[in-house]
Write a protein that binds this DNA or RNA. Sequence first.
DNA 1: AAGTGGTCTAGACCACTAT
DNA 2: TAGTGGTCTAGACCACTTT
Lengths: 257, 257
Amino acid sequence: MDMQKAAGSGESEGIDRTAFEPVYAQLVNILRRQVASGFLRPGDQLPSEAQLCRRYGISPMTVRRAINILVDQGIVVAEQGRGTFIRPVELGTASFQLQRLQELFEDDPRNTVRLLQARIMAADERTAAKLQVAPGQRVIYIRRLILACDEPTLCHVEYVVYDPARPVVEAEMDVTALRGLFGGAGATMLKHGDLSVEATLLTEEEAALLQASRPAAAFRIEHLFFDFDDRPVSWGWFICRSDRLRFTSRLGLRGAE
Amino acid sequence: MDMQKAAGSGESEGIDRTAFEPVYAQLVNILRRQVASGFLRPGDQLPSEAQLCRRYGISPMTVRRAINILVDQGIVVAEQGRGTFIRPVELGTASFQLQRLQELFEDDPRNTVRLLQARIMAADERTAAKLQVAPGQRVIYIRRLILACDEPTLCHVEYVVYDPARPVVEAEMDVTALRGLFGGAGATMLKHGDLSVEATLLTEEEAALLQASRPAAAFRIEHLFFDFDDRPVSWGWFICRSDRLRFTSRLGLRGAE
DNA sequence: AAGTGGTCTAGACCACTAT
DNA sequence: TAGTGGTCTAGACCACTTT
């Protein structure tokens, strides 16, 4: 028999046409398993599309769809006229999401937002530049403390353009749950935003709020959001203790995937 | 005429069948422009696939392909039986790449790697646990300083399993350019890896190497790489001054895109 | 019942790379 | 010239949601 070879999820898997899983997804997973098991290794050439059509009894478009997905996932690279090859792992392809941060604003009674301060003030130089308004123009200044699982986790400082004509403002003012900005109804007022992450030292005040002893390192996540006229609406930043939020990523495919 | 409406990149663009750009990509860009210009806004419904087929004179599979790309890009969400809708911007979907970090290892004469130390030692508790070897077993300890544009930018500490049977080891020892690990030939020896990023304080030694005054905050990028038997091969971390490496990301589509 | 997205077929033609 | 990936067609059938 030829069954020995199939043990390490080699190449003799087939398509199950009665399965709920679509054919293209099954092929994606077959090939992913072959990579994860080491049967296919970086630099190896995938069988040609025609071969895959014959071997699995599926049409060319379906094979292409599967391969395109593998390309999108960064597992494989296709070169016209040459073939499709397994990509080696590369540090630069790692990506980190802010998923965890957003989860702090989910509907959990242990996740709460305390409004520390909210007032109208004159924009200083830096704020005016970021929000593209004249220095001295009125802006809304908001400070919040976010508790996750009842533990102080995040500080948030935000400057919002004050313009009674914009409904964004009123939405901002009364929001203690921040959902106005992120994911909730308020997000439909924002067209795009820029984000940056850096490492920073906690200020005395931040350390007090976050119950940390100084000196301590923290993430600083800065945001600048724009409305549908591409005008800045909101500028601010989160300060987050590093031990309460970590960014992780995986490169390549683990064996037991 | 109906040309007024087209000014803000509204809806009266067409497909150019003589263009080099594939039809599906043209449709992707038409729809992206409609979102970027504010013609389509979060929550709005896209024309149905059948309508898009008729309006642009293309076949259903081509329309589907374009829409699938927009789904992958997170611009749009498709709901079976209901329609396809513009997604509001969400903080959690932001993603940050390590591209910049990898660029420090590109072939630029001003980017250099100094090998500070490389010796064989007995693994301590923590290292043994990470590398899944017995405490006291021999490991290779490597320290490097990476200069970008002739400025000290990164510290790197790495522990590599010492096993003469593995060619990875010899490759590691002589590498002062780190390309063995990232992107170069050595990467083909690694099947997958785990990464995490946190904020940390510079130690006295790190501060000296990076020419920073303490206290100072820095990124700590930890990595753990595995071979094709899913056994750990290399554990270590980069320490990077935050002012020399920043992670940025964009949410949604800017108007001038 | 009508309209939506989701999958899949069985080809066609093209552009590119190798030999 | 043969083999590769890249694009595109004109349908078919299905699953789901809404009316």
